[in-house]
Design a protein around this nucleic acid. Structure first.
Lengths: 264, 264
DNA sequence: GATTGTGAAGCCCTTCACAGCA
DNA sequence: TGCTGTGAAGGGCTTCACAATC
């Protein structure tokens, strides 16, 4: 998982489950591809395969939107594209600002997926005066000083933070103060925001670490032992300061019934 | 959420819950920051605040790793850093290849977070012959032809795909055939992989769409109506082909008890 | 006959609340 | 006294399986 919500604990009871919302863009993408190939209808089985989920889940998801299928036939592709787009709010225009035009910010500015789906890059903002005026993805970069003005003038409610970690919270505060209520954060920091503001984060290094965890387990299985349970290599482990000599205190592993070799 | 797993439905019963694994990198980051400030111990409350979770969840998470805290005191920062690093497999070196050195690939190559945590960029690979030999982030880009050789020579098991969507599956197949078993996919496509291969995806446009969904709801609440329940603007809605005139067939909305205005 | 829509069951995760321990 | 570790309760999501419908 690359993301997390900061706001809205479990509210919106009458609405669509969060897990379903997160999959709607997936369905929409698959449906758009079908639409471009002029496929008129699709079954839950086919669409599920294209979106990489199972069909029961897909049908359940669609049931939250309404009864948009036809039994014995399937779903009307065009109709479903429209309904999901509307549900996601993509039938309206969303001006977006990207703050921090380094490698990543530039990549985001150039990313075609934004423009294609109701999102419009209203401005690129960077703190470096040398960047000001430079065109990136056909848009002139503006200086941070103008942030508030840009947001007001364009009615921006969604901001993307692609700055270094150190600057992220400050940028976030200014965005929120200027009226932004949804933030997509690429900086590796936990952002603090007031109630009513949504934050989603994308963290590249976290994703890799999760992969490494599973990769390590695979390697452990191959060699016939229970993955990381067996602490085979503890050289270099810093001893917990107050306990280095307390041999009686056994730190037990994840499973209470396994008297595994652990640092004592 | 920016990611999803393709493999391992719900296996690894004796292991650490997936949700916990996904948070370990967060804790590790917070702990590393404390370590750099030479803070010796930290309570679950403080650490949870720094990581952006609640303390009960953090304690539960740590309980899966073992009993690494001291009641009445808290957790030893250095010791916990080591234990989490080991659990995540970050005490070993992970050579990584990045395929597709466009804007995004370059951003990833330059991202410091990789190198800092056991990950080493072993090679940058691009299909464009004009890119070959060019240095990006201090590493010379190599041509796709050499992909298999690079993976073998470096013992790479983790690959990052930052190519256009159209090339992603093909690159994925080659990576897997060459021995890669974990893939981080930035291309907006569903990848198909054999059992035993993990795929995580990061999808920028999906994240924005999820934000748009919530943003739209906020706007709906402000104006006093129930968000997207009321289909106020249906101009341009494509009628479902087989049903355009079937006035008797009522498509009901998400709530069965709301006879909402819907296209008939 | 084919496929959707959905109660019901089960699983996983979160949260609570407090016993246990330093 | 203070804080961890954890059983138990609660909630949300997934999966099953089949009735309803075209």
């Amino acid at each position: 998982m690359a993301t997390g919500r900061t706001h809205r604990p479990a509210t919106r009871s009458r609405g669509i489950p969060e897990a379903t919302v997160a999959r709607l863009p997936l369905y929409l993408r698959a449906l758009t591809a079908l639409s471009e190939r002029s496929v008129p209808t699709v079954s839950s089985e086919e669409l599920a395969a294209a979106a990489g989920v199972n069909s029961a889940k897909l049908r359940k998801d669609f049931s939250y939107l309404g009864s948009y299928g036809t039994r014995g036939v399937g779903y009307d592709v065009e109709y479903l594209v429209y309904q999901i787009s509307r549900e996601l709010g993509l039938t309206q225009d969303w001006p977006v600002v990207i703050v921090g035009i380094g490698n990543l910010g530039a990549a985001l500015a150039n990313y075609g997926g934004f423009a294609s789906r109701g999102f419009r890059v209203a401005a690129l903002i960077d703190a470096d005066p040398a960047m000001a005026g430079k065109p990136v993805a056909g848009i002139a970069v503006q200086h941070t000083d103008e942030l508030e003005q840009i947001i007001q003038d364009n009615g921006v409610s969604i901001g993307v933070i692609a700055t270094p970690a150190g600057a992220a919270q400050q940028v976030c505060d200014r965005l929120v103060a200027a009226g932004v209520t949804s933030i997509l954060n690429f900086a590796p920091t936990v952002l603090t925001v007031p109630d009513g503001v949504d934050v989603r984060k994308v963290d590249l290094s976290i994703e890799l670490q999760i992969l490494a965890f599973h990769e390590q387990r695979k390697a452990g299985e191959e060699s016939g032992q229970g993955g990381s349970e067996a602490a085979e290599d503890l050289e270099g482990a810093p001893a917990p300061s107050a306990r280095a000599a307390a041999a009686t205190t056994d730190r037990k592993g994840p499973d209470g019934d396994v008297p595994a070799v652990m640092p004592a």
